[in-house]
Simulated scan of single mutants.
Amino acid sequence: MRTMSQRPTTPHTPAPGAEQHPALDFANSLLSLPTGPLDLLGTPEEATAWLLGHDLAPVGGRLYRPCTDRLHRLRGAVRELIGARTADAPAPPEALAAVNAALTATPSAPLLHWDAERGLHRALPHPADRIADRAMAQLAADAAELLTGPDAGRLAACGGAPCTRFFVRTHAARHWCSTRCGDRVRAARAYAKKRAANPS
């Protein structure tokens, strides 16, 4: 398995915990930057590259827009569940259903289908669907482990606005997902203090 250092570079380093939990990196793939939002899975090509970089798709595999849209919906559900966990709030039922659906979406045998041309027949899903289904099943399984395992109690939302990333706390006093976010918060506080001292 490739390490994070061998993955394609992204504008930000992974949040603490993302190396152990691809689902956390998946949830954080929609970034909120001071310059605006950045979606690392925005296009089918970007989504394919992200899955390849996380060993969740075969080399040469390719996603299309419908599968990319499904990934976006699963990411939204995972983000909702992590957000609820960090806020000690009930898990949203729709998000639970979406993750559970992804967990059970990968068939282990050809399923029965019917159409007017071929009648009753058995077939596996389209190859592109299989790539997405398998990746989503793995991400959903990792999200379930993250949300119920030993790291669940250390999940936190970054306190450095406008950042919307989640991370696993490395110590109780940690409030930010990165040094960059911490520096930005400290700089904003220093600026606000200076303004308050010199209102003119």
Rank of each mutant, 00 (worst) to 15 (best):
R75D: 06
V78L: 09
R79H: 10
L81D: 03
G83F: 01
R85W: 05
T86G: 00
A89R: 12
P90T: 14
P92E: 02
E94V: 00
L96P: 06
V99D: 00
N100V: 00
N100P: 01
N100F: 05
A102E: 04
A102C: 06
A102Q: 05
L103I: 05
L103D: 06
A105I: 05
T106A: 15
P107C: 10
S108C: 11
S108A: 14
S108E: 10
A109M: 11
A109Q: 11
A109I: 09
L111T: 14
L111S: 13
L112D: 14
D115P: 15
A116T: 13
G119F: 11
G119E: 06
R122S: 07
L124P: 08
L124K: 13
H126A: 15
P127Q: 01
P127F: 00
D129I: 14
D129E: 15
D129Q: 14
R130K: 12
I131T: 12
I131P: 00
I131Y: 01
A132P: 00
A132M: 03
A135Y: 14
M136W: 01
Q138G: 09
A141F: 04
A143S: 02
A144N: 08
T148C: 07
T148F: 04
D151T: 01
G153M: 12
G153V: 12
G153P: 03
R154F: 12
R154M: 09
A157P: 02
C158D: 07
A161N: 11
T164Y: 04
T164G: 07
R165G: 02
F166I: 07
F167S: 06
V168Q: 00
H171A: 03
A172C: 03
A173F: 02
A173E: 09
R174H: 02
H175N: 10
H175F: 05
S178G: 05
S178M: 07
S178H: 04
C181H: 11
G182W: 04
R184E: 15
R184V: 08
V185R: 08
R189E: 12
R189W: 14
A190V: 02
